[in-house]
């Protein structure tokens, strides 16, 4: 094969030698600087997570009480703890009502006495792409619901957070439809994973973590695990949560952790364990597939996100 010399590049298009030599040495220098900076930065950042913990080890208590999504107090996760520090959680009444044979109001101490507390170590996956592992203390939601004797027409459980703009400055913002509401299908609620937590790490819950009583549903994104509950209602219709109200295209009723269904903002394929810098793959139903996959058989999980 012959190549015609006529198609040679005109000399005007060729970068002068001095230029590219300069550029090369510049790129080389820049590259070396960047590599050196990275090399210096990575171990330094990794030193931050020097505890070298296994992925499934519990998050440190210090991190779990200082990095919280609780918009009633602040939209800044690192500010919630201080904003919530004076929150009065005692006395605290929780109403169990709606389509039940035994509507009842409990004082939270009564609840603790009646149902006790067992430790459950659960993964907590936030929709924002970070996660924690938390040893909760609490009791199964199903026991409380059973004692309330749901009527046959009850199909959903609706949870409501305290509405108190004086104590919860975030509720003075009218952008959100306060109070915070969340819901579960009755069968989801009766599942033995569903926990009502009154403590964590062997200590009483702090306000920033949802004191004195919060839901923990570990196979769903964190926002489903409603905090500082004052009302648990059995209802016939699917409740509309605060986040469904706020952006229906982003937050659905089910909100099951699902690495295959993306959120417009955050990666749902991976997550970062707090205290660790690497990303790890997110597990289907946050790793609780065995326990909960049966609830969603035949459902289109892309539609029912």
């Amino acid at each position: 094969m012959k190549f015609s010399r006529d198609h040679s590049i005109p000399s005007s298009l060729i970068t002068p030698e001095s230029f590219y030599i300069n550029r090369r040495s510049f790129m080389k220098k820049a590259g070396a600087t960047l590599a050196a900076a990275s090399a210096a930065l990575h171990p330094a950042l990794n030193a931050l997570a020097a505890r070298a913990r296994a992925v499934e080890d519990p998050t440190t208590y210090a991190d779990a009480i200082s990095y919280n999504n609780f918009y009633e107090f602040s939209e800044y996760k690192e500010a919630v703890a201080s904003m919530a520090s004076g929150f009065v959680t005692h006395p605290w009444e929780v109403a169990v009502e709606g389509l039940v044979g035994n509507p009842r109001k409990y004082d939270v101490d009564e609840l603790k006495k009646q149902y006790g507390a067992e430790e459950r170590i659960y993964r907590l996956r936030c929709v924002e792409g970070w996660s924690m592992v938390i040893p909760w203390d609490g009791f199964e939601l199903g026991r409380l619901i059973k004692d309330a004797a749901p009527k046959p027409e009850a199909r959903y459980v609706k949870f409501t957070t305290l509405l108190d703009p004086k104590q919860m400055p975030g509720q003075r913002k009218s952008y959100y439809s306060w109070p915070y509401v969340e819901g579960l299908r009755l069968d989801e609620a009766m599942n033995s994973l569903s926990l009502l937590a009154t403590g964590m790490y062997g200590k009483t819950l702090l306000p920033q973590n949802g004191a004195p009583l919060r839901l923990v549903v570990p196979w769903k994104y964190g926002f489903k695990s409603i905090k500082s509950i004052v009302k648990i209602e059995l209802v016939a219709q699917q409740p509309t949560s605060l986040w469904m109200n706020t952006s229906p295209g982003e937050y659905g009723f089910y909100a099951n952790v699902n690495p295959n269904v993306d959120h417009p903002r955050w990666s749902q394929a991976t997550e970062r364990r707090i205290g660790d810098l690497r990303r790890v793959r997110t597990l289907m139903f946050n790793g609780y597939e065995k326990e909960v996959a049966g609830f969603y058989k035949g459902m289109d999980l892309v539609k029912n996100f």
Partner: peptide
């Protein structure tokens, strides 16, 4: 903040 622990529990996000 990096040196003295002033970053949040999620330093990369911070």
């Amino acid at each position: 903040d990096f040196q003295f622990g002033g970053l949040t529990a999620n330093p990369i996000e911070d």
